[in-house]
Computed example of a mutant assay.
Amino acid sequence: MRHGTTSIGDALREFLNKSRMKPRLTEVRIQENWEDIMGKTIARYTSGIQLIDGKLIITTTVAPLKQELSYSKDKIIKLVNEKLGENVVKEVIIR
């Protein structure tokens, strides 16, 4: 690559990192990878995943799953952040 030039991938990555779209795109990435991160059973019984200001909000109507997820908040943070390759999730809220 010549001096002073940037690849399209690098330019796009830089644009997205500075863009207001980044939080929404990160949320979509979490939603798309939710089954890989948490497994099929948990993914099947969670009805919503949102990311708002570093808070991952997980919605489920299954009471035992709510309890299990409440006990696993630190693990969920670790798994999601590892999957994304950056520290985006700071807190988990179960609804």
Rank of each mutant, 00 (worst) to 15 (best):
41 T>Q: 13
79 L>A: 13
34 W>F: 07
62 V>Y: 09
15 F>G: 11
64 P>C: 05
72 S>Q: 09
74 D>G: 14
17 N>D: 09
8 I>Y: 02
90 K>M: 05
34 W>V: 02
43 A>D: 10
22 K>S: 13
93 I>A: 12
51 L>Q: 01
68 E>R: 12
28 V>L: 15
72 S>C: 06
39 G>F: 04
73 K>W: 00
23 P>A: 09
1 M>T: 10
56 L>F: 02
83 K>P: 06
87 N>A: 15
48 G>A: 09
3 H>T: 11
28 V>R: 10
55 K>R: 11
86 E>K: 08
94 I>Y: 00
8 I>C: 04
95 R>L: 08
67 Q>K: 14
17 N>P: 02
69 L>E: 03
13 R>G: 12
45 Y>V: 07
37 I>W: 02
30 I>Y: 03
4 G>E: 06
71 Y>E: 05
80 V>D: 01
79 L>I: 03
9 G>A: 15
43 A>C: 14
4 G>F: 08
60 T>G: 13
61 T>V: 09
48 G>P: 03
25 L>R: 11
17 N>L: 11
44 R>D: 08
63 A>H: 06
42 I>G: 01
23 P>C: 11
65 L>K: 04
61 T>Q: 13
64 P>W: 02
73 K>H: 04
23 P>W: 01
3 H>Q: 15
12 L>W: 05
67 Q>S: 15
90 K>S: 09
40 K>C: 00
22 K>M: 14
47 S>V: 09
61 T>W: 04
5 T>K: 13
52 I>C: 04
30 I>D: 03
92 V>Y: 05
63 A>V: 11
58 I>H: 02
55 K>F: 00
29 R>Y: 01
49 I>K: 00
45 Y>T: 05
70 S>T: 11
68 E>F: 08
14 E>I: 07
10 D>M: 12
29 R>P: 00
60 T>M: 12
31 Q>W: 08
84 L>Q: 06
83 K>R: 15
83 K>E: 13
64 P>M: 04
85 G>S: 10
50 Q>E: 15
77 I>Q: 01
8 I>P: 01
82 E>P: 09
86 E>F: 04
37 I>A: 06
19 S>T: 02
85 G>P: 08
3 H>G: 10
26 T>A: 03
83 K>Y: 04
82 E>D: 13
95 R>D: 05
84 L>D: 04
95 R>S: 09
36 D>N: 14
29 R>A: 13
26 T>L: 10
89 V>R: 01
41 T>D: 12
48 G>E: 07
65 L>G: 06
35 E>F: 04
14 E>D: 14
47 S>R: 13
18 K>C: 10
34 W>P: 03
86 E>W: 00
30 I>E: 05
10 D>I: 10
44 R>I: 03
